[in-house]
């Protein structure tokens, strides 16, 4: 009588076939459950509801901005700029590594304190490691009030005429 786990024991073709089949079913089931667990784990740690600031907000009426105003909105990380032609908005997030830039009125440019990037009043890179201009953000006029959505980007040079 051979031991059950004695693999050297002679076994007929049918037994070998069954052993191979059961092995395949077992490892297949293991593979499926590992894959399922991995997918579920990633889904679990990826949040479905975010309790973050609304990216869409009102900034006031056009006539409350004298020409030349650069309004920095800290929590929303957006600049609203009033020029002679109209309005445009820029992201205040440095395109280098995501720090918050600040407007330096005497230099008429935006400066990032983290690694020294500098952007012109129009958002173009004029110095430092930043790879791209500050993205332009859509400004819309809704019912006489300026509305900005920091998630909506517009092509450079876009200006809201008022």
């Amino acid at each position: 009588m051979p031991l059950i786990d004695d693999l050297s024991a002679s076994s007929n073709e049918q037994e070998l076939e069954r052993r191979r089949f059961l092995g395949l079913v077992g490892s297949g089931a293991l593979g499926v459950s590992v894959a399922g667990t991995a997918v579920t784990a990633v889904q679990y740690i990826s949040p479905n509801v975010l309790y973050e600031e609304d990216t869409r907000f009102k900034v006031g009426t056009p006539d409350s901005f004298p020409v030349g105003t650069v309004l920095a909105l800290g929590p929303q990380k957006v600049y609203v700029v009033r020029t002679e032609e109209g309005f445009f908005a820029l992201s205040a997030v440095c395109t280098h590594l995501g720090c918050m830039t600040r407007y330096e009125a005497d230099q008429k440019s935006f400066f990032c304190p983290c690694h020294g990037s500098r952007f012109s009043a129009g958002g173009d890179v004029v110095g430092g490691p930043a790879p791209r201009a500050l993205p332009r953000i859509e400004v819309a006029l809704e019912g006489g009030v300026l509305v900005v959505d920091s998630r909506k980007l517009v092509p450079p040079g876009t200006i809201l005429k008022v």
């Binding site: 740690i45 949040p47 975010l50 309790y51 973050e52 600031e53």
Partner: peptide
Amino acid sequence: GGNAIGEA
């Protein structure tokens, strides 16, 4: 756990 650094 989101797009910005916060509670999460």
